[in-house]
Amino acid sequence: MGELIWFFPKTVEEVKDIITSREGVVPHGGGTGLLRGDIKRYRGLLDLGKLGLSYITEHNGFVEIGAMTTYGDVVRYFKKKDSKSVLYRSLVDSATTPLKNRITVGGSIAYFPPWSDIMGSLFILSAEVFLTGEREGWFKILDYVSNRGLYRKTVILKIRYNKDKDTGYSAHYRAVRTRVDHPAFTITLLVDIKDKRVDDASIYVVGTKDKFKKLTAVEKEIIGKKASEIDTEALNVDNVEFYGKPQFTSEYQKALFEIEVKRKLREVLESVK
């Protein structure tokens, strides 16, 4: 076993060259995901720290976030700018303060563990990731997570989403034991209201047997309805299955999910009034 080699590229071209030409080299963002496994199994680490990828900008109607932006950066940015943002709501309770300062947005998309707090909101926002490597350019986040071909030998450099996607009422639920815990699953939802009616709704659960699921049945049932007339308890919730986890059994997760999705939805609809 050879020694681990570090690469510190200063340009995107170098990143592309290293990731496409070397075997066993993986990108390094904050390192928290990599350190959950055995670091010695990699031949090389491609550090993204010298590329200026730690930023959040808004232009042309898009919010763009550099891959090296940490959860802590995101929370601090939106706390000032827009604490109603679904991204803020999803990340404010995720991980601890010191971990938040190390977990990067790009790293957590590439890693996508079942306890991810960020993915639901990115799905809702129809975010896109910008890749370099064997595939280049903007890709839809849903394509990225379901197509292993996009994952292999690529590096996420940035993500973006249309600001218009983040104008509704949002909520994020974490199925946890204590307040400082990784969730068994999360529910993220965003509801757009026009004239007191649900104009659009997007609800995702992350941490299911299929990794994540869009709750289309619930969305369909509420879209077009007057917010005040929706009886959340009477909703037919999509069938979602969970694996048993150290936090909770599969049966309990299912029961919890069905209750909490209704509760969160009610909380959002009530905030409309």
Binding site: T96, R177, T178, R179, V180, D181, H182, P246, Q247
Partner: peptide, 14 residues
């Protein structure tokens, strides 16, 4: 669950 990751002791928020 032989770790603080899955053996939860109270944090200041709990």
């Amino acid at each position: 669950n032989a770790s603080f990751w899955d053996y939860k002791i109270p944090s200041i928020r709990d």
